[in-house]
C-alpha cells in the first residue's frame, strides 16, 4: 500500500548510466585466466584421481566427483575468460582511474587521482609467463582500491609511473 503511493509521487526513473571504460585488457589475459581456471580445477581432480587409484573400494565415490569437477572446470575455462575479456575494461583520465570488472557481479570503480595513496604493479608467476601485470591503486579507504588486471607488463609499468608522478604533485594526506 505505502509503496504504491510513494511510487505514484516518485519522479520518473533516470536513465543515466555508466559508459564502459575505453580500453580493453590485453588479449593475452584470456590465456592467463584460462590457465588459472584449469590449474584451479586440476588440483582437486589430481588428488581425487590419485586417491581413487589407491583406494579401490571407494573408487567410484572418488572418481565421480573428479569427473564432475573436471567437467565444470573445462566448461568454465572455455567460457568464462572470453566473457571476462569482454567485460574487463579500464581507463585512466586526467582526473580519475576508472575500471569495470566481473560478469555475474559487475563492478565499476572510480578513484580520483587526487586521492590516490599508492600505486603498485603485481606479477604472479603465471602473469610473468604471459607477459602480463596487474596495477593496484589504493586510496585512503580500506575498500577503495582499484585493480586493473591483465595489462601488458610494459604498459602497466608506464601507467604506474604516470600515476605516481601525478599523485606526487598533490599535497595533503588524501583523506
Amino acid at each position: 500500500m505505502t509503496t504504491s503511493t510513494t511510487n505514484a509521487t516518485a519522479p520518473p526513473p533516470s536513465s543515466t548510466r555508466l559508459r564502459p571504460p575505453r580500453n580493453p585488457v590485453d588479449r593475452r589475459a584470456v590465456g592467463w585466466w584460462t590457465t588459472n581456471l584449469l590449474l584451479l580445477a586440476a588440483a582437486p581432480v589430481a588428488v581425487l584421481v590419485v586417491l581413487g587409484y589407491l583406494i579401490t573400494p571407494a573408487r567410484f565415490w572418488l572418481i565421480a566427483p573428479a569427473v564432475l569437477i573436471a567437467a565444470v572446470g573445462l566448461v568454465a575455462a572455455a567460457a568464462l575468460p572470453r566473457w571476462w575479456f569482454r567485460v574487463h575494461r579500464w581507463e585512466v583520465t586526467d582526473t580519475a582511474v576508472y575500471t569495470r570488472t566481473g560478469f555475474f557481479w559487475q563492478e565499476w570503480r572510480v578513484a580520483p587521482l587526487s586521492r590516490i595513496q599508492t600505486v603498485d604493479t603485481r606479477r604472479g608467476p603465471l602473469e610473468q609467463r604471459f607477459g602480463l601485470a596487474t596495477v593496484v591503486v589504493t586510496t585512503a579507504s580500506a575498500k577503495g582500491a582499484v585493480t586493473i588486471p591483465g595489462l601488458d607488463h610494459a604498459l602497466a609499468a608506464d601507467i604506474a609511473e604516470q600515476l605516481t608522478l601525478t599523485t606526487q604533485a598533490v599535497e595533503g594526506d588524501a583523506t
Partner: peptide
Amino acid sequence: IGWTVRQSVFQRRAGLSTVLATTA
C-alpha cells in the same frame, strides 16, 4: 574519495544497482 557501483545479474534484470561511496 571514490565510487564503486555494483550490479549482480539479478540486479541488472531489475534495473537496480548498489552504489558505494568509498571514504577513508
